[in-house]
Design a protein around this nucleic acid. Structure first.
Lengths: 333, 333
DNA sequence: ACATCGAAGGCAAACGTTTGCCCGGAAACC
DNA sequence: GGTTTCCGGGCAAACGTTTGCCTTCGATGT
């Protein structure tokens, strides 16, 4: 009734456990007769190798487990990303240990500890900020890490990002081309690289067009829905409100839409709108929403592939990928 | 440079490793002097217990790891659910091993194997269908399982579901109250308990109102976006199309909305619409979408709590929770 | 005919814990 | 004062693998 172990298989097949182990791992050599017999018995017994024991034994190796730490799985961007990671993990017989850290440094640290303590083969994460000591420590411990979305200032690490500057720049350029001169922006946190890069795109697009950047039109949120809501209200309550709004992430976009609906404003006539990240209903929204679409799934996919490569060869030079976002022009601006 | 182990701590503290272990687990008794010394050294060395070794040693025990297997993390319903699970897991120092099985039985089996092989303390999952042999096997192996969303026909298991019959019944009752007589429905798979229950709600609401159920208005999808899209087109192409549509899950609702937009139909004038599951933009959609809202986060939360209780006391009688959905009436019907 | 070699597979240590068992000594009981 | 009890803590086995090393044996080379 108990789960069969190597020992049970070996006993039944009248061979040593090491032989069974070698057959499973296709290491070493053995007679075809023995192999067939052992395999047959494994089937019969329904033997499944114990991943825990294997992981304990081979510390730096293929435990076929990777960790993924993300801010919040409820953010569709990260859900897509997670799916990308998961798909390539599955194809390579890896399992994924998923953790939500909720932008909470303490929680991030907890999960980092857990993952190390679980001897994962590698970790994928968007660092909470640019020189996150906890992450650095993990890297120093020799665990493969690949950064996604945000990057770590110090250190030659594998990373895959999306070109945030370009995404924001083309979006704002488009807004300007539509004739807008007062453009509000709801940014991410100033201490996140994504937030900063997108703001830089906003500013550069203004500079390129010879437009001034007015500080009252620039608001810093926290990438969550509530802040999008609150900041949109703030910015629209200005004595000279903007005619267009650029919202720097999907969750805040939802909040912005709420605020706009609450005020009964017509999009794009009374307020034009460009968002960041696709939302599931962007295309069918009324009016359809102009959005900067990030290749979230691909980010996850590339990150997992990079991680797999590094696990295989820890000495390889770090790769840095920058994927391109795409401005999808619809009717909201 | 290597990660410190019990042995290192014990050596430094000049005690036996068993003493250190007992101090960590607060089992047994020891002099306060010894305890203080050992704790101090643990801090100094930055000792973190190795979860893998612990799990190997104590097979039926508190390895502080639970598995969550869901169809697709990109479905907001499951993302919310996952978040609920994750939050209570974190509060109890559990980590969550998350797996997407994509409604693929083979993948489900793979992950079930992985989880058992990882010696998780318990598993939360919506069974792929009602008497899923793989899941049954896991239960038989003595691993705590709690079913969410869907149930398993056989077996006295902990489960937490949402009242699907009631959700659909009140939704369709509402549609009928709005004066509709030809109501299309895009169901889930006929072999899923959720799909069937919602269909039953649809039928019962018709029966209650003395309305016939026309089979051409009943379509079976697979809970994914594409099928929602295709089936909506089909159903609207009927010579006598329905005046209202009830869509049985969020992803299919997105597809339905696409099809309706493509046909340029006005909601609710030309086609009234009620969906299942909240979408992030439901409330701000134009028109705001009438939806059956499921308490997804609570489902996950309750499931995790139930699992924790069962892990603590494997003998306790199974609990079955049924949470209530809520019809949020907006403007789409 | 003898040394060499490679294939097949056995032996046992190690990974980092937990835990049952044991033991010395001090306190408590009769 | 002898016996029981309990406290603090050590010893070593066990969990299920992987892997370096060793042995055996038949084949091959010279």
């Amino acid at each position: 009734m108990k789960k069969p172990s190597l020992i049970d298989v070996a006993r039944r097949a009248k061979v040593n456990i090491s032989t069974v182990s070698r057959i499973i791992n296709k290491t070493g050599s053995f007679g075809s007769g023995t192999e067939a017999r052992v395999r047959k018995i494994m089937k019969e017994l329904g033997y499944k190798p114990n991943r825990v024991a294997r992981r304990l034994r081979t510390q730096e190796g293929s435990s076929h487990l990777m960790g993924l730490i993300i801010p919040n799985i409820q953010n569709p961007f990260f859900a897509d990303l997670a799916r990308g990671v998961e798909d390539v993990a599955y194809r390579n017989n890896f399992a994924v240990l998923l953790c939500n850290y909720d932008e909470d440094e303490k929680k991030e640290r907890f999960y980092l500890d857990v993952l190390q303590s679980e001897s994962v083969d590698g970790i994928i994460l968007p660092p909470i900020h640019e020189n996150d000591p906890a992450v650095l420590q993990v890297v120093r411990n020799g665990i493969p890490v690949v950064c996604v979305d945000r990057s770590l200032s110090s250190g030659a690490l594998d990373k895959v990002e999306v070109d945030n500057h370009m995404g924001a720049f083309t979006a704002v350029e488009h807004i300007i081309a539509k004739g807008h001169r007062r453009i509000g922006v709801i940014c991410g946190p100033a201490d996140s690289s994504t937030g900063r890069e997108r703001l830089r795109g906003y500013k550069d697009a203004h500079a390129r067009a010879g437009l001034p950047v007015r500080s009252e039109l620039v608001r810093f949120g926290d990438f969550k829905q509530l802040s999008g809501h609150a900041l949109t209200h703030e910015i629209l309550s200005l004595s000279q409100p903007p005619t267009a709004l650029f919202v720097c992430n999907g969750l805040m976009m939802i909040g912005a839409l709420e605020a706009i609906a609450a005020r009964g404003l017509k999009i794009p006539r009374q307020i034009a709108l460009v968002g960041y990240d696709e939302l599931s209903l962007s295309a069918v929204f009324n009016p359809p929403l102009t959005m900067v679409k990030q290749p979230a799934y691909e980010v996850g996919k590339c990150a997992a592939e990079l991680l797999l490569k590094r696990i295989e060869d820890p000495k390889r030079p770090p790769t840095s990928l920058k994927l391109l976002p795409e401005l999808i022009i619809r009717k909201s601006c």
